[in-house]
């Protein structure tokens, strides 16, 4: 019985001490270092325009449907690109619903971008990402959208391609992950072009 009380006391007190160290001191030290060393990133890599309005985050996608903008991947986060409600579609490979959705997206993608009926469509253009907030599209996807965007803006295809190159995130250290074009950054850059 004496042991029981001693061990219970140890369990309660260790919970308190470890909570203070691991859930108080530790996150606050990370907070302090993060804010001091990487202030912008620790606060969400926000994009702020000259008027001081937050326009989004460099890391999070937004929805675009206007032909003059590059279009991101389909999103299953909330009503689409809800950055406080991340989610994938969680539809499986034999899902009728997913099949029908992809079929519609393919038809829309081909008609928007003037592709012929048999041309394969990049997978990322017609599938929802894991987070619903994927900031990137694949290089092929960007390439297929380029003529549409150039035409809608009266820009040369070369100019748009140059902007795509500048807004492409390559592989980390040259070999990790896959390259992608950051859609929000690219569209903001397009809006800057006079």
């Amino acid at each position: 019985m004496k042991d029981f009380f001693a061990e219970t006391r140890a369990a309660i007190l260790s919970t308190m001490v470890l909570a203070v160290v691991c859930c108080g001191v530790y996150p606050l030290v990370v907070y302090g270092l993060g804010q001091a060393l990487f202030h912008d990133k620790a606060n969400g890599s926000l994009i702020v325009d000259p008027n001081g309005t937050v326009r989004g985050s460099k890391l999070l996608g937004q929805n675009f449907t206007d032909p003059k903008y590059f279009h991101p991947r389909p999103s299953a986060a909330g009503n689409g690109y809800d950055a406080a409600n991340s989610s994938g579609s969680n539809l499986g490979p034999t899902s009728q619903k997913l099949n029908d959705t992809i079929k519609d997206r393919i038809a829309a993608y081909r008609s928007e971008n003037g592709l012929n009926e048999n041309q394969p469509v990049p997978a990322d253009a017609v599938t929802a990402s894991g987070s619903g907030l994927d900031p990137h599209i694949s290089l092929q996807n960007a390439e297929l959208q380029t003529p549409r965007v150039a035409k809608a803006r009266g820009l040369s295809v070369e100019k748009v391609q140059e902007l795509i190159r500048q807004r492409t995130d390559g592989r980390d250290l040259g070999f990790l992950g896959e390259p992608g074009v950051n859609v929000l950054n690219l569209n903001l850059a397009l809006d800057q072009v006079q």
């Binding site: 991947r73 994938g88 579609s89 969680n90 539809l91 490979p93 997913l98 997978a123 990322d124 599938t127 929802a128 990402s129 894991g130 987070s131 994927d134 990137h136 599209i137 694949s138 995130d169 992950g177 896959e178 992608g180």
Partner: peptide, 9 residues
């Protein structure tokens, strides 16, 4: 199969 996957990965 890109459904549910991120481009950067």
């Amino acid at each position: 199969n890109m459904e549910g996957k991120e481009v950067r990965f």
